[in-house]
Write a protein that binds this DNA or RNA. Structure first.
Lengths: 200, 200, 200, 200
DNA sequence: CATGAATGAGCCTTCATTCAT
DNA sequence: TATGAATGAAGGCTCATTCAT
């Protein structure tokens, strides 16, 4: 007896609810302090149901870490390393990244957890790391471009890209302010400095 | 009958061993995944002995976070914000900081944990935060000085200082390389850019 | 999906089994020497199941003390302080009480424990104490009645009632004989003396 | 090297202090809730010293139960079952017993504990039981005497003696009042009734 | 003899996971 | 599929006891 379409939809929604609550709790309290029972309660389902949608706690955590990555990565990679107005593009990108990182709050706590204990979550880490590399390479490409055009001081693009990523993550770890706070924007020019813009 | 001097020394060493192993495990595996039994085993003592030296797991964690802070903070604050050769002093400072953060590896994982879950470790966080403020203020002082002398582009020193701290922490989170790696030095000029040196 | 009626019944029975075994063990060995594991084993369930039915050890003990009280108190208060044939009623009552106390064995050991360490079990004690007061007052009412009718020597009813209760408890503490023993009945006339019947 | 007399005296005193504190704590908190460390602290010695004077915790408890018995038993048996003025002697005895039981407070808590859990403390119980028998027999002797003289109603002396002992213990369990309270005396006439004095 | 560091048995409790309904 | 009772591994912690100093 195949499930009705409505059934399937309901299940998808239930799975999504559980995943969102898992992200919330894993991010706020960490892996061990988050119990299946808490996730279930927050999702309004019995804890048995969590096991219907996710094989076990590890899988749930892995899903919480990797599934949002698809969506976020698109936004984070939404800049043009070959843009003609390179400095403008750079500033637009940095502004967007800073805003995103301010808003990602929860998810980034999760990322920090995985990256910080990469030996404990090797599979989740591997996926995050893969994205990091893509991200850094695209940033590096933009940098090389800017340096060739004489708009940026010459620095090793690899290290600048890594430093940039690190700055974004470090800010998220360090700042406990609300994402709405306009304080975040203040960091845009500071972050820009990393790239060594000549006219400043 | 007071303990012999030799006894006291032995105990101090044992406490130190336990603390070091605790730092190692807490840093590598996180608070919850680190059990008293694991710490004891790594230290070569029975788990009962851990309770001889630390009241409970919380206290042990707190000690692991705050005791090294004393030593590290001295080194981190070892720069002169009123130096006459300001750019040189800045570079020296950044170089030292980068080296230190490369070496701190373990300890900084601990810091990230506390900062990331500050609501879970409020007392440990308070002590770290107090140091952060001192650190940022001293960096800001140096910055103001450099800007007044016309050596640095004018930026809000508060945000630059926070960004600098964030960059250092972010690098440590992001990089899993050995501290011996000379890769770390490559970040010195990049980090310098944050401060907006004019002649570069 | 609510549990089937059969399920609910099974659970009630299981809870009852655990409670009975808890009463048995708490009574025979005391609070501290009774472990959850022992209760579980005696009940034929895993120790984890005990926590399904009782929040923790304290709650289990409290339930063991207070739940039987409801049932017992009805029986203990089953006498008529305004009876016309007062001496007959008195004798009936004493006979019943002695029989009950002989049979209560286990439960009364529990009561002695709570009363003896009332500062350790304040909530359980409070419930027992409330019943004590009701019991003594009803006894006192009967006494006053008998004294007014000239059937009993005049004594302070409050003290007689307390002494009567104490005698019952003291007998239970002192005697380790089986409740079936007809020895218990022998105490009926002795206990009667406490009330000071005139024709004896 | 034999110990000096002074040494021996000091040790005796230390043993006595430990024993007294043990009685206090065992009585107030029960066997399991009383730790060797607490006894040692209350006695102003290191917990290691407790083991110098008592083989282990069980022995300490046994000593706390049985050693005071010698002294108390003398007082409890201080009445003359062959007294010529029998009713006067009876009243004197009851008054003394009631006063003693009011004052024994602590020690009787210990007794109740042992008697209540006789299967847990079989050796201590055996010694208490031996005294109980002696006590009851002497009481019975006095009773028989009184009954033969026609001063007391005829009742089975064995049961009266047991009831009397039970009343004393029951009162101690039931009453939490201070021994100084003059409330205790009020129970003397009530207790007297147990023996069935004719002229009352 | 006095001390207290060291040890590990054993306790209560939490929680992931299984599985009958 | 949904539920939650049942289970037992594992953790933090207490405390009696041993024994070196």
């Amino acid at each position: 007896m195949p499930l009705s379409e409505e059934q399937v939809l309901k299940m998808k929604q239930k799975r999504e609810t559980i995943l969102q609550q898992a992200i919330l709790l894993f991010a706020e309290r960490g892996y061990d302090d988050t119990t299946i029972a808490k996730v279930a309660k927050a999702s309004g389902v019995s804890f048995g149901s969590v096991f219907t949608y996710f094989e076990n706690k590890d899988q749930l955590f892995h899903a919480a870490v990797t599934e949002p990555l698809q969506e976020h990565s698109v936004k984070l990679l939404d800049f043009d390393p070959q843009a003609s107005e390179l400095l403008l593009e750079l500033e637009r990108m940095v502004t967007n990244h800073i805003k995103m990182f301010a808003a990602f709050d929860l998810y980034l706590r999760l990322v920090v957890q995985v990256v910080g204990y990469y030996n404990r979550f090797p599979y989740s880490f591997a996926e995050l790391d893969a994205f990091h590399n893509i991200f850094r390479e695209k940033i590096a490409e933009l940098l090389v471009n800017g340096q060739q055009k004489g708009l940026l001081h010459v620095q090793d693009p690899k290290y600048v890209a890594t430093a940039y990523m690190s700055l974004l993550i470090g800010l998220r770890v360090n700042l406990t302010d609300e994402p709405q706070s306009n304080m975040w924007e203040k960091f845009v020019p500071v972050a820009m400095q990393l790239f060594g813009p000549k006219n400043s």
